Amino acid sequence: MARFDGKVVLISGGARGQGAAEARLLVAEGGKVVLGDLRETEGQALAAELGPSSALFLRLDVTEKADWARAVAAAVGTFGALHGLVNNAGIYVPKTLMETDAALFERHMRVNQLGCFLGTKAVVPAMERAGGGAIVNISSVAGLRGSPGAIACSATNVRCAA
């Protein structure tokens, strides 16, 4: 039996890169994935690659509570349950301290921290109905040490713990 046989996992930032790798691994291990991302073309292509019985793509802005509610409803409506969340979405726009304005800093805060919080809060009721599950919050070493040109990323990459 595969490790994730029949388990349904929502992956934010799932259209490419690390999120896509996570999706491919989960499906290879028998799971089903809901790919949430702003990159619609890439997300739809990955969902098609993984197959309609294993993957669903939907546009997800992690900073919007309504988008999270829609993603959870889609996961349950399509696959019958939700067992996990990978809070993978994050941004990094390199700028020095003096180049970083409040709007850029706030954008990092909204995506890298608020998005994680909203996602965690949104999935818990569905996961409880499914009998439990797991939430994985992806972060960066930028949250552990500063780097030149990474003030906003470093300050916002300590993710919430559920």
Rank of each mutant, 00 (worst) to 15 (best):
S54F: 05
R110M: 14
A45N: 10
S12I: 05
V124P: 04
V8C: 02
G143R: 02
A152T: 07
E22N: 12
G13I: 08
F57D: 04
V8I: 13
A130M: 07
N87L: 03
D67I: 09
L118H: 13
K32S: 03
L85N: 00
I151C: 14
W68N: 01
A74F: 08
V27T: 05
K32M: 06
F57A: 04
A89G: 07
D101P: 01
A69W: 06
A20F: 12
P52H: 12
A73V: 04
R39A: 15
G77V: 08
A152N: 09
G31A: 02
G31I: 01
N87R: 06
K32L: 03
A28I: 01
A75M: 06
L118W: 14
F79H: 06
K95G: 00
A102H: 13
P52W: 04
I135R: 08
L38M: 14
K121E: 11
T41I: 09
E99W: 06
A23M: 10
G132A: 10
A162C: 08
V93N: 13
K121T: 10
C153Q: 11
G6A: 03
T156H: 12
A150C: 08
C116A: 13
N88K: 07
G36W: 13
G77A: 10
G17Q: 07
F117Y: 15
G43W: 07
E40W: 08
A74P: 02
G149S: 06
L144S: 06
C116F: 08
Q18G: 03
K7G: 00
G115Y: 09
A23E: 06
T78M: 01
D67A: 07
E128D: 05
A155D: 06
E128P: 00
G132F: 08
G84S: 05
L10H: 07
A71E: 01
F105M: 12
D5N: 14
F117N: 01
I135Q: 07
V62W: 01
E128C: 05
L38Q: 14
K95H: 11
E29M: 04
S147F: 15
A2D: 12
R129H: 12
V9Y: 04
G30D: 05
R129T: 13
G30L: 01
L104W: 02
R3I: 04
D5H: 13
P94T: 07
A23D: 05
V86F: 14
G115W: 07
V141A: 06
R24G: 04
A126P: 08
V158M: 13
E29R: 14
M109E: 14
M98R: 14
A21G: 15
R3N: 03
L118M: 11
R107W: 10
A71M: 03
V141K: 00
K32A: 01
G115P: 09
P148A: 14
L26W: 02
G133Y: 05
L35M: 06
G19H: 11
I135P: 04
D61A: 11
F4N: 11
S12T: 15
E128Q: 15
V76P: 00
G131H: 13
E42D: 15
S54I: 00
A20S: 10
H108F: 10
G13P: 04
V62D: 03
R70F: 02
A150K: 06
A142F: 02
Q18W: 10
V27G: 00
E49L: 05
